[in-house]
Design a protein around this nucleic acid. Structure first.
Lengths: 350, 350
DNA sequence: CTGAAAGCGCTTACAG
DNA sequence: CTGAAAGCGCTTACAG
């Protein structure tokens, strides 16, 4: 009655060889005569046989220090955010190119990461990448005990025994302050995430530090949740009263675009005439002709290549200590900072 | 030497029961005394035991008509596109809520779908969702033979024995023409994908049909690849010569925004004064204050809920025939069509 | 309610 | 180069 799928035994019978031979025919580098291999492959094609990855994974559990599934877990928040969508798209291509599959888990906050990890680890993933969230100390130890390497993307390790790839947030914040200071601004506001958001805090810290060196303190501070709408609302609050800022550093492009649209279209302000604006990330929409947002670019492609490569190494050499790599952000001068326009440092506008 | 992970045998020993009992303790509805169950669960927590989903999947292969892995395959092109990023985010939440995991595979074109499916099926996925792409006739039969239900999202089944959820493209195209005609336009251009793109073709067909009923033919036709940049370039071509269109229907919001930015910021044209523009999809950026793009909305949330629900049914009742469900698009009137502005049919702007 | 045992579909020493 | 056999970690009839 069962819709029996074709197994290596069926192929073996059809090809007139043992089941072991079938297995070897599908294992690169296994010792098998080319003639036998061809015979098996032909029979397999005939029957529509595909090796069962689940069963293979079971078998390898016997030899390997830990069971290999061929799957890498990905834990992500806010997949709809263009920054993350791009990251996932890139991760996916790199991982696939190296022969891994992606088991995706979306969470609403860092609080759910441990649970997600637990769920993912039941599938004996070979490694896991966590985007913009952090796991608990306990969970990090569990992963370590299981031999599952962890890669934090866009987040600091905080001393955990895990790998990480990220952007130099503190320096990025300084860079933003640099350019605003150089443009002669003195009433500089900051817009970031909430108090619990580490990335935003680091960017703010660098920003505030650089301001302090120039004898200034932030003129105003607003926060949002990294959506366009929350940026727009922050923008409205920023300019609601008298004594407005003459410049704004926003820790995320998505929110910066919210501020830009609020300023221009809700309030009728001119940017950069009425105030300068600088974002962070360099998402595609930052380069749109109507935006031309000056921002700090994250070298996403390189970062992701590096993250995958570090993780790959860790998955191959279980014992090795974790690696962390921080990339510097680069200033992309476009048209939203007074007196420092147009001369884009990037040739493309993508 | 192997970093032996803890198995049900370890828990059994610790709890002083048989391995079967451990298994039962983790199987909802299995016949086991509550006291035994608690003892097992305690021991499991103590040892950090988590059942091995891979092994579980192997076992079920014995009883079920086909092996259940708890994973649903997702095949997607252009993950970086906001329309797809949103779709994936939604799929992920619904699938997770029902206890499934998502095995994600990205492809560059429909040509790679069969290969992706082959790769995914080696993991004995319980079902698969293909976004905006189609599988071959042969592959559809393979899936059928394996008892793996297939859901096409945003694509027609073309007579294949698979399920599908999509938007009524033809009617959407008619709707777009309706509004442009009503606004009094006569030189109406169309911008879509290339000739091989079915979605675009259907929207165009409905659009052209409605135009014909009014005694008109499309004034001009340009195509792009669904990126902002390609929309911008199409916009440039649209207005490069004399005898310009006075309205444009673009089969995708992302491209429509490219046209909008090209018109306003590269060419200095006014929308909707110089020409009217209507898009398709209603992506978030369409509602940004500076855009206010009139468009045809896809009810993504409902569509995805329906897709998951149809797929879930198919995964539970293998024999059942596939289902197809088409949703109507709704006109979202914003500010890019002459004389029909501002009165948004949607209360929110999200 | 419980335990011993078979079996899911593979991989890989082991012995020719 | 090849085949017989053990074993990966579970689930679930089967027989108490």
């Amino acid at each position: 009655m069962r819709k029996t799928s074709v197994t290596s035994y069926d192929v073996a019978k059809a090809a007139g060889v043992s089941q072991s031979a079938v297995s070897r025919a599908f294992s690169p580098g296994a010792s098998i005569a080319e003639k036998t291999r061809q015979r098996v492959l032909d029979a397999a094609r005939e029957l529509g046989y595909q090796p069962n990855a689940i069963a293979r994974s079971m078998s390898t559990a016997r030899q390997e220090p830990s069971q290999k599934s061929g799957m890498v877990g990905i834990v992500v928040t806010r997949l709809e955010d263009p920054f993350f969508a791009h990251a996932i798209a890139n991760f996916s291509r790199h991982l696939q190119a190296r022969g891994w599959h992606m088991l995706l888990f979306t969470v609403d906050s860092s609080a759910e990461v441990d649970e997600a990890l637990n769920s993912l680890m039941q599938y004996r993933i070979d490694g896991v990448i966590i985007l913009s969230a952090i796991l608990s100390d306990h969970m990090a130890q569990v992963c370590r005990a299981q031999g599952t390497p962890v890669m934090l993307y866009n987040r600091d390790t905080k001393g955990l025994e895990v790998s990480a790839v990220g952007i130099a947030n503190h320096e990025g914040g300084r860079l933003a302050a640099d350019i605003l200071l150089e443009a002669g601004h003195e009433r500089i506001a900051f817009v970031g995430g909430d108090a619990g958001d580490e990335t935003s805090r680091e960017r703010e810290a660098g920003f505030v530090q650089r301001l302090a060196e120039a004898g200034l303190t932030p003129f105003q501070r607003e926060s949002g949740d990294y959506t366009f709408v929350s940026g727009r609302e922050a923008g409205l609050r920023l300019f609601a009263r008298h004594g407005r800022p003459d410049a704004v550093f926003c820790a995320s492009d998505v929110m910066a675009l919210g501020i830009l649209h609020a300023a221009r279209f809700d309030l009728g302000l001119r940017v950069p005439l009425d105030f300068s604006l600088i974002g962070f990330d360099d998402i595609p929409a930052a380069a749109w002709p109507g935006h031309q947002l000056t921002t700090i670019r994250q070298p996403i492609r390189r970062m992701i290549r590096e993250a995958v490569s570090i993780l790959a190494e860790a998955m191959e050499a279980p014992g090795e200590p974790p690696h962390t790599r921080l990339f510097p952000g680069t200033l992309i001068l476009r048209d939203t900072v007074r007196g420092m326009g147009t001369a884009s440092l990037s040739p493309d506008g993508q």
